[in-house]
Design a protein around this nucleic acid. Sequence first.
DNA 1: CTGAAAGCGCTAACAA
DNA 2: TTGTTAGCGCTTTCAG
Lengths: 344, 344
Amino acid sequence: MANIREVAKEAGVSVATVSRVLNHPEFVSPATKEQVLSIMKELDFIPNNLARGLALNKTYTIALLIPNIMNPLYPEIAKGVEDVAHKHGYNLLLCNTEQNREKEQEYLNLLMNRRVDGCIITSSLLTADELAEAGKNRVPIAVIGRPRQIPGIHCVYTDYLQGGYTATAYLIGLGYSRIAHIRGPGYLSESEDKIKGYRKALGEKGLAFDERLVIDGDNEVESGYLAAKKLLRLDPRPEAIFASNDLAAIGALDALKTEGVKVPEEMALVGFDNIKMAAFVEPKLTTISIPVYRMGLMAARLLFDAMAERVEAKVRDTQEIDLTPKLVVRKSCGHEDRIGEIFS
Amino acid sequence: MANIREVAKEAGVSVATVSRVLNHPEFVSPATKEQVLSIMKELDFIPNNLARGLALNKTYTIALLIPNIMNPLYPEIAKGVEDVAHKHGYNLLLCNTEQNREKEQEYLNLLMNRRVDGCIITSSLLTADELAEAGKNRVPIAVIGRPRQIPGIHCVYTDYLQGGYTATAYLIGLGYSRIAHIRGPGYLSESEDKIKGYRKALGEKGLAFDERLVIDGDNEVESGYLAAKKLLRLDPRPEAIFASNDLAAIGALDALKTEGVKVPEEMALVGFDNIKMAAFVEPKLTTISIPVYRMGLMAARLLFDAMAERVEAKVRDTQEIDLTPKLVVRKSCGHEDRIGEIFS
DNA sequence: CTGAAAGCGCTAACAA
DNA sequence: TTGTTAGCGCTTTCAG
């Protein structure tokens, strides 16, 4: 692998000229351009982007921090981000933070070292101050997950409270009154938001909030399974479950089947996220859909805007319109049957 | 963000010394070390890895080429790779090739430019020659997917023929004889291997191969759905379906339900891959499991070995033992019921 | 244990 | 249009 100097020598021109045919070919005569190009090929020359980056102070790389790529939500975000990154000629550095503060910090430092041109963080565990601190370096940051007014840090989010409210209100509207909730992990602010929405709906409809109907989970299939088993032991038994995410809902569904409890006849179930899998379990899961791919896409766009120092893109842009959670009605709540009950 | 020179000046030492406290602290006196360190903190100094990489000819980055991160197989591979990369202090560049030769080539070139230290390619569409060519550059490459004896290119793979054989033989053993196959995309050599296994099992058991029972698909849910619909129109109808992957099997399952065909009573179904989702559809899917995470892990290990120029790790190492596909029996083939039939 | 200086490969003034 | 040259920020001989 030759370098620019060897090419220059062999082609009988200066390194500047070689560099020019690479970066500003319009300023070099067709003849020499041809000449240089052919020598490049001959010498199997591959420009070193590292050196280029050093000279230009640019790496054409952005980083994506996610808790765990194996959680089905994140590949979709990653795809959204990668799609716009690739369009801009950028590469994506993938960082699994394992839902771990230290690891997140560690990665952030590493990324500053590497001089990535930008960084997208999902489900961050860091405080606003810590993020702001990281944002102080010249690296633009976009956060996906929850709204926080941090100067210089752009943000895409979904209104989880609204989502929790919608799910619960839907269940109530169907006629259920003993509605349980399988909670998400405490370190995620969205878990708190969802439960707030749940309580809000309960309150509005004049239903009492019952501690015992709320079971802790961690948004994994297994925790949903366990939570449902606990719920089944309650007396009286709840009539419906609102799970913090689809994975937990699917786990719960599995437990219910195991116990011979019919869904939705004996227990209604609503999830959150609308992962692909939700449409393929039996019964198909009613859930709250959030536009995950779009969140990735939009976060990336905000980031590239920021990197171009064009706009001071702010939270709650018109573009965030699409990011409202939406109820997706399928079979797990017994929609049609209940409609009958309601009007009978 | 200060650089090494400013730190040196401020600390009243040479840049060499600053560099030393970073890289060989054991060769610098405790006093000056302290001094330099404190100045670093004070000046908010972050070493520039780009420059470091240029000097060292090393980027501490490896790349992972996958068709599409949204296909549930790949996050698992990615996790395996990332886990070992992170352990070695390396970062992971994620590249979606979209199952597209040009894009794959393009990425490969880009990666040479970026001077990644190594590269893992899954489901490559490139020919052995093209891969060998890429391997000629000093960047070690590991391939996940199919065995091919390419000098200098390491490889982790699963015996898909064997998997196809196992799935089909299992179905035959259960008493089915009209067994259909939903094929994977033609550009994947594994699709061919699976069908070879299918034919081999058929042949061994004295069953005729029937073209009409093989429907083209592309390993996506939708294609499985369509394929099953087609199969249902056949007369006589097949009794069992072996799908090229779980996604297609799940699509097929959905179609069967839509048509009111009971699984497994009226139609047995076996998939391939054992994705997580396979255990949560109804009935739970019998499938061929391949150790995807381990494949990522092992490919990464091979790569790091190669990067350390330690071992000339070869195809078919003892470690590949785990990579044999394995039958996972669940409910979609009517195991127990059929057992009854067989012995009646 | 420390410093001076060369160099990693490329880009971009500036001059010609 | 082209060449000269000074960096980009760091590492590493080689002397001391």
